[in-house]
Design a protein around this nucleic acid. Structure first.
Lengths: 176, 176
DNA sequence: TATTGTTATACTCTATAACTATA
DNA sequence: TATAGTTATAGAGTATAACAATA
């Protein structure tokens, strides 16, 4: 994925010419798309403490059933110490609570509050709009084709890396 | 881009069910792809000092004609102080040189060495292979379709964000 | 006085390892 | 002794600002 000049074979004052056009390069397209994606999701999740990782955690709490923090950390693919920090912030914002577990007093059961569920629903909504916006002016059919192909590629890559399917796509944001 | 259960309407012990399947979600696919992309490029560029940003810089030096460090920084979208550090490492590795500019003794003209050009060529080669590997088992026709659609989307997004076309796709790595 | 490049300072993340309270 | 959660420490990375040398 080299850097590119605007034109294919532009020659500038004796310098070597660019070998590829922007239009032909997958890496460039992927880069632009992913960059836009990261920027947009970052902006959209600004009101969730911890940003993308906070969202991911909140999402897991709401959807994957509350469990211990350790189980939560593993499901989301974060270190347990990081989870502590993130939960602190999410709890301070009133989006979830740590409840005592009567069975094992070492563990804390993490439960989302109504406010947390509401915030999550809003975030989900915005994220869906972001996705639609990213695809932009593609027609319905093309859009569907792109989604399908990306899905195929992603499913295969996912199988290779052996990640937990419970994790969300935004997980990449953390660079974990 | 919510987190997902494996099944669409799996209900676990009274918890709310997951609302979407993995297969349908663009965000998830983009996340997986992005993660794989970053991992692969990171690995492939490990022998370039500064990693992806070092590569980007080296690439700009070789292809966009050597200029002042400031011009270089702007072309690549990095802070000039970071460029200083990166150039230090690239120069120490013998991939480029800082030459005095007879016209303006404040500026340094950055020029790639033969070793630098060779290293860049290798990196470009590997990056292309990475791209092909990412698309993996898509057929030739599908692969072409995906590239074309991504290209369309990317060109449009690119126009919206007003980035310099000289920048490479890997720029996303820096999270700039 | 403005500009190029460098160096220094501070701040944010992250990762590792200690610590506590239970079991 | 082992585990869940927390807190403390250290390191990398980044950003901001001060600095030296030219113009």
């Amino acid at each position: 994925m080299p850097a590119y000049d605007l034109e294919v074979a532009q020659t500038v004052s004796g310098c070597p010419t660019a070998s590829s056009a922007v239009q032909d390069d997958l890496g460039w397209a992927l880069g632009v798309l992913l960059r836009s994606y990261l920027r947009a999701t970052d902006r959209v999740l600004a009101d969730v403490p911890g940003g993308a990782r906070g969202y991911r955690l909140l999402s897991a709490v709401v959807r994957d059933c509350p469990g211990s923090q350790l189980a939560l950390a593993q499901a989301v693919g974060l270190d347990r110490t990081v989870v502590t920090y993130l939960l602190d912030d999410l709890a301070a914002a009133g989006l979830l609570e740590r409840q005592a577990d009567p069975a094992d007093r070492r563990t804390r059961r993490v439960v989302a509050t109504p406010a947390g569920r509401a915030r999550l629903a809003e975030s989900d909504d915005r994220l869906r709009r972001v996705e639609q916006h990213l695809l932009g002016d593609l027609g319905a059919e093309e859009s569907e084709t792109l989604r399908r192909l990306l899905q195929r590629v992603a499913v295969r890559l996912h199988g290779q890396t052996g990640e937990s399917l419970t994790c969300t796509g935004i997980e990449a944001l953390a660079g974990s």
